[in-house]
Design a protein around this nucleic acid. Structure first.
Lengths: 157, 157
DNA sequence: TCTGAAAATGGACCTTT
DNA sequence: AAAGGTCCATTTTCAGA
């Protein structure tokens, strides 16, 4: 899909605050609210905007710990990797999982209630797969920046 | 702030889809739309919901590469660490940054347009600080799971 | 782009525990 | 008091002219 500078401006705005009314967005980018409406609808249909969500503060709902785990697998057979991916996808404590080139194979970011919960999870996610050579645990002491924003301000159409 | 099971159910719903109308949320949890409205407003005021945003697909706006960098610093002096944190916060390509205990010190997740852009960023973020002992670059081959959801379904109030 | 109908939000007010 | 429900005004969305 081709995006012009209006689309980029709208995306930049709604990825920071999706509650802004369309007429206000229109005022920012010099477009009528109807035009904004049409563009937002199309961006959603085309999948440029995946979904709109409210971000919940993990600390306030009992998940104060963020843990990053680097996982090195024993065997890179596709079916084994897929099984591991599926177990990460299915685990609600896993916020993110990346399959990476380089020394380790997976980088997994989790939020947990306490270290005991993490220990339990390592068992079900890493040991039970029988395909983890080793993993390294990094405990976040400070979540300096947490978001999923894509840089769009500088881009132009 | 104390959250009851209604709040948890609402949070679980809106962190997956914040476009659901309040009356529909109310139907799911057995509450009137006015009650849902009051609760959502309070959750936002108390900061339990940080903000509501649309998630943009990085690939569709020219940011196909996700890169994870582990940074080890030379000196852990607070003012130097703060300066580094600020440079990560200010960089739009940095989606996430965690200050971690363990071997490395920062884990940084970036989205970039191409490797050349990453190379440029390493210069400004890592070399110019004069406080990076070494860094390790992990290129994501597959973004298996990308989100910021907190596990709430099992929790009850 | 403008207009207007349908839908959603959010306040007022009253009732219940 | 705290929280729910109903009703209603205002705002927002969104399609057709």
């Amino acid at each position: 899909m081709s995006l012009d500078s209006y689309d980029i401006a709208l995306l930049a705005a709604i990825q920071q605050d999706a509650t802004t009314p369309q007429h206000a967005l229109g005022a920012q980018v010099n477009l009528s609210s109807a035009a904004v409406n049409r563009r937002l609808k199309k961006l959603a249909e085309e999948g440029v905007t995946r979904k709109t969500v409210s971000l919940v503060d993990p600390e306030q709902v009992g998940y104060p710990l963020t843990i990053i785990t680097e996982v090195e697998v024993e065997n890179e057979r596709l079916d084994l990797l897929d099984a591991m991916k599926r177990s990460f996808l299915a685990c609600p404590q896993v916020q993110q999982c990346y399959y990476v080139a380089g020394e380790c194979d997976f980088v997994v970011i989790m939020v947990v209630q306490n270290m005991a919960q993490y220990t339990t999870l390592t068992r079900s996610l890493f040991f039970e797969s029988n395909n983890v050579k080793r993993f390294k645990t990094l405990v976040s002491m400070s979540n300096v920046k947490v978001g999923l924003e894509v840089p769009l301000d500088a881009v132009a159409g």
